[in-house]
C-alpha cells in the first residue's frame, strides 16, 4: 500500500473521530465544519485553477447558483435539499459551460477578470430579482425539525460529517481526474496549448469538461452551505471577496494543482482568521484583520508556491534517494 494512502486513511480516521471529543453544537466544531467546507470548495476550484490552470475569480457564481436553487425549491415547493442539490449542480454545470464559451480563448489575467465579471453579473441578478431570490433582503431556509431527508439539524455535528464527506468526495474526484486521461490532457493544455492542439488534444473540450465538473461541484457545495447557515443574501454567496477570491486564495496558499493544497490552505486560513478575530477583535477595530493581512503577505513572500511546496520538495528528494 502506498504511504500516501495510509496517511490519508489515518487522517480520515482522525477527522471522523475528532468531533466525538467536542461539544456537538460548539464553536470548535463549527470552525472545523466551515474549514472542511472551504477546503472542499477550494478543491473544486482546483480542478479548473490547478489542473487546467485557469485562474477563475468567479467561482462564487456557481456556489450561489447551488445555494439559491435548492433553497428556492425548498421554500416554494418543499422539495428536499438533496433534490435541490442535484438541480443546483446541474444548473451550476450548465452555467459553467455557458461561461466557457466567451472565456475559452482568454489566458491568464484576462480569464481571471472575465470570470470575475460573471460572478458580479450573478450578484446583480440575484439582487434585482426579488420575486425569485428574495432580493437583497436575503432568503432563509425554513425552520424544520432534525431530518436527514430535509438536510436540517439543530446540532453542528451532522454538518461536520456532511462537509467531511463532501471534502473526501471532491478530493477523490480531483485525484482521479488528475491521474486519469483528462488530467494528462489538461496538463498538456496547461504546459503548451498550441502543442497540445497539434498532438490532437481538443483544448476547448478539455477545458470545458474541467469547468463543468468544477462548476457542478461548487454548486452542490452551495446547497450544503445554505443548509448549514440557514440564511444568506446575494453578497454572501455571490460575493467577490467572501467566496471567489477566498477559495482561490486558499488553494494558492496551500499549493495550487495538488490534492493536499486546498486542504492545507483551508486549515491554515480559516483557523487563522478565527484566531485573529477571537484574540484581537474585542480590542481595536481593524486590528485582527490587519494582523490577518500581514500574515497572508508573509506566507506568500516566504512561500510563493504554496505551503505544500517545501514538503513536496523534501518528499521528492527522499524518493530519489531511496530509488538510488
Amino acid at each position: 500500500m502506498r504511504p500516501s494512502l495510509v496517511l490519508a486513511a489515518v487522517a480520515l480516521t482522525v477527522a471522523a473521530l475528532l468531533p466525538l471529543t467536542l461539544d456537538p453544537a460548539g464553536y470548535l466544531i463549527r470552525v472545523l465544519t466551515v474549514t472542511l467546507l472551504f477546503a472542499a470548495m477550494s478543491q473544486a476550484w482546483n480542478i479548473v485553477g490547478g489542473l487546467a490552470n485557469q485562474m477563475s475569480l468567479g467561482h462564487a457564481a456557481f456556489f450561489g447558483i447551488g445555494a439559491y436553487t435548492s433553497t428556492i425549491l425548498l421554500v416554494n415547493y418543499g422539495l428536499s435539499p438533496w433534490i435541490g442539490m442535484l438541480a443546483g449542480a446541474a444548473l451550476g454545470a450548465a452555467f459553467a459551460a455557458l461561461v466557457s464559451v466567451p472565456t475559452m480563448g482568454l489566458r491568464g489575467h484576462y480569464f481571471a477578470l472575465a470570470t470575475l465579471a460573471f460572478g458580479e453579473v450573478m450578484r446583480v441578478i440575484a439582487n434585482s430579482w426579488p420575486s425569485l431570490t428574495g432580493g437583497p433582503a436575503g432568503i432563509s431556509v425554513p425552520f424544520a425539525p432534525d431530518s436527514l431527508l430535509m438536510l436540517q439539524f439543530k446540532s453542528t455535528l451532522p454538518y461536520y460529517y456532511l462537509m467531511l464527506a463532501a471534502l473526501v468526495l471532491v478530493t477523490a474526484v480531483f485525484v482521479v481526474t488528475k491521474a486519469g486521461a483528462l488530467g494528462y490532457r489538461l496538463r498538456a493544455v496547461k504546459e503548451n496549448p498550441d502543442a497540445a492542439e497539434v498532438v490532437g488534444v481538443d483544448t476547448a473540450r478539455v477545458k470545458t469538461i474541467a469547468a463543468v465538473m468544477s462548476g457542478g461541484i461548487m454548486a452542490a457545495l452551495g446547497t450544503a452551505y445554505a443548509q448549514f447557515t440557514f440564511f444568506f443574501d446575494p453578497e454572501t454567496v455571490f460575493g467577490l471577496g467572501p467566496i471567489s477570491i477566498r477559495v482561490a486564495l486558499i488553494a494558492i496558499l496551500g499549493g495550487i494543482g495538488t490534492a493536499a493544497g486546498p486542504i492545507v490552505g483551508a486549515f491554515v486560513i480559516i483557523p487563522l482568521e478565527e484566531l485573529a478575530n477571537s484574540w484581537l477583535s474585542a480590542g481595536t477595530a481593524g486590528l485582527s484583520q490587519l494582523v490577518y493581512g500581514i500574515l497572508l503577505m508573509l506566507i506568500i513572500l516566504v512561500q510563493p508556491r504554496g505551503l505544500v511546496a517545501p514538503v513536496e520538495a523534501l518528499a521528492a528528494r527522499w524518493r530519489t534517494r531511496r530509488a538510488r
Binding site: G257, A260, F267, A309
Partner: peptide, 23 residues
C-alpha cells in the same frame, strides 16, 4: 506550478492535521 502525482499526499496530510490540532 506543480503537476506531480497524488503520491505526495502523505507529508502534507500530516501538516494539515498538526495545524488543525493547534487551532
Amino acid at each position: 506550478s506543480d503537476h506531480r502525482g497524488p503520491r505526495l499526499l502523505r507529508p502534507t496530510r500530516r501538516a494539515a492535521l498538526q495545524l488543525g490540532g493547534a487551532a
